[in-house]
Amino acid sequence: MSNLTLEVELECQVVQGCEAVDKIIEPRERDLGGFSVRRVLPSHQQRMVGPWIFFDHMGPADFPAGQGINVRPHPHINIATVTYLFEGEILHRDSLGSLQPIRPGDINLMVAGAGIVHSERERDEVRSLPHPLHGLQLWLALPERDEECLPEFHHYPSADIPTIDVEGVQVRVMMGSAFGVTSPVKTFAKTLYVEAHLQAGQRLTIPPAEERAIYVASGELRARDNHIPEFGMAVLKDAEGVEIEAVQPSRIAIIGGEHIVERHIEWNFVSSRRERIDQAVEDWKSGHFAKVPGDEQEFIPFPGS
């Protein structure tokens, strides 16, 4: 998704944790016209978790026929975007010529590197009928050595993402390595991204990483003395053997990885260098980014221009 304004870091309600949990972030819901988005990262209280610099929870939404996602072409630099749907479908196009429907369980990895433009719309067959949309979109800050790499696009069908049973808990290792398995999804820094479904009373030990957080997409968790509500993100301390328990049936995302030096961020641009963002803003205003084949007529202007 594209940021609609220059306001990227949002105020969230923060509860201080204890023992294993540093803080619990509860994002505010934003209405984007027909569907809601909860932005957890970046916030004023927590800008990054490992290499993850952006975390949006889209929906759940139910669109009537004729309405739906319609995000015009917009640019990114120095990051990789990760799109994952629980329900619905998004049609991805980008300036490399990629044309890919994203469906539930798939992982779309778009590496912006030196610069890419993409749009997120829907196929006519989807838009012509009532349809849902629900999922997560995340951004990874690329390590400094990779920030200006050539842009890439990778699509991983649901069947390629390893699913394992961890003492009765269904777990998908989306990116990185956890519970003895490794995801095929390309990474740059050490990265952790795991999805898990827990029934009430089930427990799961969080895999290790330099920095970690747990997001509750649905349900409710307990971590030692901490209550983690639905739509809350618990940022963990550097503690071993952190175990969570589902208070009710829960769907969660575990993210983390190695510490990355804090990044500058403005609109859809992220970089370790402020001057690189200034350049990208001018390049977008001047029309110097590549066009999206099949979606050349529209674009999102830089806010305020």
Rank of each mutant, 00 (worst) to 15 (best):
E11M: 13
L6H: 12
R145Y: 11
T205P: 09
M175R: 06
G97T: 03
P293H: 00
S2M: 08
R127K: 15
S36G: 14
M110K: 06
Q170E: 12
L133W: 05
P51Q: 04
S95Y: 02
D106N: 04
V194M: 02
A246I: 08
C12R: 11
E87K: 11
A234I: 00
D160R: 08
F63K: 00
S128E: 14
E220L: 14
A61Y: 06
G115R: 09
G232K: 01
S95V: 04
E147W: 03
A217F: 09
L109V: 15
P229A: 11
E282L: 13
W52P: 01
E275Q: 12
D295H: 09
C18P: 07
E243Q: 14
N78L: 08
I277Y: 01
G33F: 05
P249I: 02
F289S: 03
I102A: 09
I164M: 05
A246E: 06
S98V: 07
Q170G: 11
G241E: 11
M48G: 12
G68T: 07
E29D: 11
I107W: 00
W139F: 11
Q279L: 13
E148P: 10
R222P: 15
I53N: 13
F289Y: 11
T187K: 05
P184N: 04
K237V: 07
D146Q: 09
G59E: 04
G68D: 05
E167G: 11
L138P: 08
D146R: 07
N268D: 08
S177W: 06
E147N: 04
H288K: 13
I102G: 07
I255V: 15
P208M: 11
V37L: 05
V185D: 02
A253T: 11
P143Y: 03
P101T: 05
L236C: 02
E7K: 08
D31G: 06
M110T: 15
V49I: 13
S119V: 08
K291H: 14
Y84M: 09
V166Y: 01
S43Q: 01
T187H: 06
E7R: 09
P51I: 03
V185I: 06
T187F: 05
I79T: 15
A253R: 03
V37D: 04
F54P: 03
K190P: 12
P249K: 03
Y156R: 03
K190W: 08
M1G: 15
G201L: 09
F86R: 07
T163M: 11
T163W: 11
D225A: 15
H131W: 01
H197G: 15
R123F: 12
A234L: 01
